[in-house]
Design a protein around this nucleic acid. Structure first.
Lengths: 133, 133
DNA sequence: GCATGCACTTACCTCAAGGTAATCTTCACC
DNA sequence: GGTGAAGATTACCTTGAGGTAAGTGCATGC
């Protein structure tokens, strides 16, 4: 395995190639997704198994119905989540991660890991930075 | 190494533990950072080596001066980037990734990799989704 | 016959991220 | 003395993500 600098160069190369200095960039595109307020929370919640609409709403209490509907539709549009309607009475709807959705969990997990590990350093850095300013 | 579902459960466990159902969550915190429009672009640009202010501006042409200053200050506050003023005439300022900043490159790189690999599937999914709707 | 749960949709409003453009200071060059 | 580059800061404005609240259609339970 390469060291961090080597990796960085590889990635920045691909980034540049992808960005191509203008035009739509797949990375920016994905960042927009994962950067929004709810997508990743829902993906992580669905990672444990399929869930119904109101089940999701109960497990993520601070999301509004509107945002739940909207985020699920976006995730479905991107093929990360699939929607299954069961013709029961009343009809119930189940959401589950697709294979593509599952495949996001590993790289995204790395980032969570990084976040958890780095939080103390970041917090410390902020305190000392704010003290000076 | 565990499979994706196993990993998912591990991560969602930690996510929940960290989020604690309310209060500031380190993951949300980090997502806010990497989710913004410029932070990660700058980190990846700096990954290749230290850069001066206007050098960065030239390499990332579509960022405004205001956002460049602001994003750099935020990155500095979080300890991902360090700022070095050289007392030349005119004084020049160099920005470079800290060790913490470098450590972000690996997990973030995984995500870029995922994005690049998944882009075709996502694009296809969007087309067929939009066709129906 | 009324309330309640499910799975949404719609209209309206707010707030903050980010863009634009002007301004500042110091130095060097011509 | 005027121009231009470096490294910003400031005021103003626009846009859109997301919140709030209400309504919808259907079915079961009391």
């Amino acid at each position: 395995m390469q060291n961090a600098t080597g990796l960085a160069e590889t990635y920045i190369e691909r980034w540049s190639a992808a960005a191509d200095l203008s035009g739509p960039c797949p990375v920016r595109d994905v960042l927009d997704k994962i950067g929004d307020k709810w997508s990743m929370l829902l993906v992580m919640t669905l990672a444990c198994g399929p869930k119904r609409f109101n089940e999701l709403h109960r497990e993520v209490p601070d999301i509004s119905q509107k945002m739940l509907t909207q985020t699920l539709r976006d995730l479905q549009r991107d093929g990360l989540v699939s929607r299954h309607v069961f013709d029961t009475k009343p009809p119930s709807v189940e959401y589950r991660l697709t294979d593509l959705g599952h495949s996001l969990i590993v790289p995204f997990g790395q980032l969570i890991e990084w976040a958890n590990q780095s939080m103390p350093s970041i917090a410390k850095s902020r305190v000392s930075f704010d003290k000076v300013a």
